[in-house]
Structures are given as C-alpha cells and as structure tokens.
Design a protein around this nucleic acid. Sequence first.
DNA 1: CTACACCTTTACGCAGCGTTAAAGTCAACC
DNA 2: GGTTGACTTTAACGCTGCGTAAAGGTGTAG
Lengths: 252, 252
Amino acid sequence: MEYTVQKLGRLAGISTRALRYYDEIGILKPARINSSGYRIYGVKEVDRLQQILFYRELEISLERIKAIMNDPSFDLNEALKAHREQLLDKRKQLDLIIANVEKTIASSEGRMIMSDKEKFEGFKQKMIEDNENKYGNEIRGKYGNKTVDKANEKVMNMAQEDHEEAGRLAEEIKAALAEARKTGDPSSETAQKAAELHKQWLMFYWSEYNKEAHADLAQMYVDDERFRKYYDEKHPGTAEFLRDAIHIYTVK
Amino acid sequence: MEYTVQKLGRLAGISTRALRYYDEIGILKPARINSSGYRIYGVKEVDRLQQILFYRELEISLERIKAIMNDPSFDLNEALKAHREQLLDKRKQLDLIIANVEKTIASSEGRMIMSDKEKFEGFKQKMIEDNENKYGNEIRGKYGNKTVDKANEKVMNMAQEDHEEAGRLAEEIKAALAEARKTGDPSSETAQKAAELHKQWLMFYWSEYNKEAHADLAQMYVDDERFRKYYDEKHPGTAEFLRDAIHIYTVK
DNA sequence: CTACACCTTTACGCAGCGTTAAAGTCAACC
DNA sequence: GGTTGACTTTAACGCTGCGTAAAGGTGTAG
C-alpha cells in the first residue's frame, strides 16, 4: 500500500505539514519521491510513523525519538512494552485529575468542600510541601496532629449548610468580640459569650470538645501570623483579647 | 505570607521565568512591587497561580486561562463539566492507544496482524477513510473473523502476568522448535511437544480451543509472509515445520 | 568589604508545527 | 482538449511558552 502525504495524514490523524516537517528533520522520510516530486510512503514508513506517534504520546521530543529509533540497539518489542507501562502510568495520572475535577464540581455545587491541598491532588507538583512545613508542620508539632487533622477532615467533608451556619457563627463571634473589646475586660459577659460562640463554631470542625485544645488553639491565634491577621484585621490586639477570653472560659 | 519570584516558583514548581512571563502577559501580576523593583506575591496570587496551574494541567492555553479568569460571567461549573468531558474523552483515547500498543506487541511477536488503519487507532479523533489492508482483510476472510477478533479482544483485556507468562511460553516454543527441527521429523516427540506448547500459548489469546482453528492458524503461519518471517527468522522452513507438527498434533 | 545568591530588564532562541503564498500536477467531467 | 478542483511542491514567516544568556542592581552573612 502506498500513500501520499494527505492519505497518510488522514490515516494517522496528523497534518500534511507535520509529515513534511518530519521529512525535513529526517525522522520520517518517504519511501520514494515520484516523477512529480510527490512524497510516496510505503509499509515501512507507516510502521515507523506509528512508532513515532507512540513516542510522541509520551511527550518525547522528536529529536529524542529520532535518536532512539536510529539507535541500532533499538529493540522494538522492548520499546513497546515500555510504552505500555508508561501509558498505564499516564492513565493513572489522568484518573487522579479526573477525580480532582469531579471533586471540584461537587465543591462548586456545594456538595462538598475541598481543602486547598485537595484542589491540587493529582498534579505531580510537589508544591506547597515546603510552605506547609513552615507553618503547617510547626503548628502540628506544637498542637498535635490529631486536633488539626480532625479539623481538616471535618472541614473537608462538611456539608454546605454547615459551612454557611458556621459562617454566620463566625460573624456573630466577630460582632461579640468587637462589642466585648470596648469593655477591655476578657472576663466580661460579652467576652465570655464570644468565647462560648467560638466554642460552638469550633464544634463544626472538631469532632469532640476539649478545653485544653480550645485554649491551645486560642494561643495559636496569637502565635500564628495568619490567624492573628484574621482577628486583628480591624482592631489590633483582638487575637490576644480572644485568647484571654477563651483562657478564662476554659478554666471556668 | 509574601513571596519573591523564586520562592513562589519553588512553591509551585515552576520557573521564575514563567512567573515573569505570566506577569508580562498579564495573567498573574504580583501583589506589589517593592522599592527595588522586586515582584512581591501575596496569598491571593498564590491561589490564583494554583488556579492557573490547574487549568494548565487541563491543557488550556494561557490565553484562554486569562480570558476565563478575567471574565466575571465565566461559569465555573459549566467549564468544569466541559473539562470533565474532555478528560473522559482523553482517557478513552488513551485506552485506545494502550490497546493499540498491546496489539502492536502481539503483532511484533507474530501473534497477530494489524491493518494500517488499526495501527493508528487512538491517535485519530475520527476514523475517516476505510483504508483496506491487503493482508488483514484477506486473512480475516479466509480464516474467519471470529478467530482473529476473539484474539484481539483477549489481548486487549489481558492482564500483565498473563502477558509475561505468554512471553515465557513463546520462548519455550522457540526452543522446542529449534530442538525439534534437528530431528527433521514433525511427528517426533519434541516437535509434538512444541505443538502442545503452542496450543497452551494460544490459549492465552483464544477463549476456547478448537483443533480446526489451530490447524488453520498453522497454515496461516506459512501463507502469511509476516508470520512466516517471525518463525523463519533464524532457520528458514521453521514455519512449515511448525505447521506440519501442529497438523499432526491436531489429528491425533 | 567582599562574596554570593538573589533580583531586574532586554532580547534572542527553540520546538513543532499552522498558515499563507505562489506555483505545479492529476483525474474527472464537459 | 480544456477547465475545474482537489491535490502536490517549496519557501517563508508566525505562534506559544517559555529557556537561556547578558548586563546590571540588591540584600545579607561573614
């Protein structure tokens, strides 16, 4: 069977330009050139093109493909088996990404909540690791994995309504805190109410309440820049005020 | 948390050049520029970059990503669903290519014949031309579709271990054949053992054994140049010898 | 004060083609 | 045998997503 550029292109699903380019760079030369200068490809070229496409599917550069295929020690069978393995790996990766997209869809429809980390699961990027280490691990080490992990777990699986409810609670806490700060007294009634609200809010994320952990968390709000920023946004010192209120609350 | 180019690059697993490029094309601008002209990125930019990488993994051009992320009426949900469809398509195509590799392996081992069209299955989005293969169709007509198709099906679904086991068997057959050929007698014990091994090997690919089909296949090994080549590689006449041995084996 | 690792802009290079442009070829139908 | 229309050719520039200098400024540790 003989093919002109377009016929081979249609057969293989690539453009005529690509075939001419392959000729140009010497990775796939036609079997012969006819009297009018047309490129004519034969059976061997078809097979070679198939090989090229296999490699290209693995995102190997044409340069390297050429080197590989011109290597006299090139073992077709071995190469094919390697292809199979690599393609199976690729499929696994793809499955991860598909799972990710599905989770993201669920998340965008409010059926699920994703942690930032989850959002990027499936992408080979090592990513946040370094960063996670700086803060995440530090805090984990200090306050224990269980507390943080359980919170994460619950946050991740929490239904949307819960999230909204928690959001309302968070607003209430903010309001109560703003009110309480005017008194300047963390043991005041409003301050203690804020601490109580904070406990309730926490219970959306923690599986079980524990005074010590609550007190530790309050300290974390002061120690960790990101948390502190959240509370101190409008009124500096709020994080510390909340910590004090919670510390009083937890020993009562 | 604030990041310079290199820090953010390390965080996200991309180059500083890429970050400058993203700034240049306006897809990701730093939160601010410090007094020395350094790019400083903040939390929002980190999130945005993660989004960008997410889209990029889905093989969307930066141009489109930019449009997507700048368009306030962009429907995330719709886009995600479209992405999912594309990814599922991609997986289907990948499965086709994997099946293609499996078939090509079978073909290179002489267990199967592929039409030119088949060789590119999975690479093309659409199958357009019916490009008839001289051999494939001929032999299908001659020996029946069922035999060949069933073999294909099984090859495609075959598990890894089976494949390796089959490979070992193929080696055994080769060895037995080489041994048997010395006797020159296809009815000799070693020749019959080779035929028996060949049957076992076949059973990796056929769903059920059938003496007639086995005998037909043996004849095919002689008739078809490509199969014959595989067996005659070292010792011409081996294909015929095997055929004779199998013919004797199948009437026993 | 000196390393040295960072940062900046400018600018050319590269793969793997897509895309004209200008011109020749082939088969079919009139 | 002439025209059409789908094919082919070479030559050349364009595009994306950066890599890779080059030439210089900055930050900080020793």
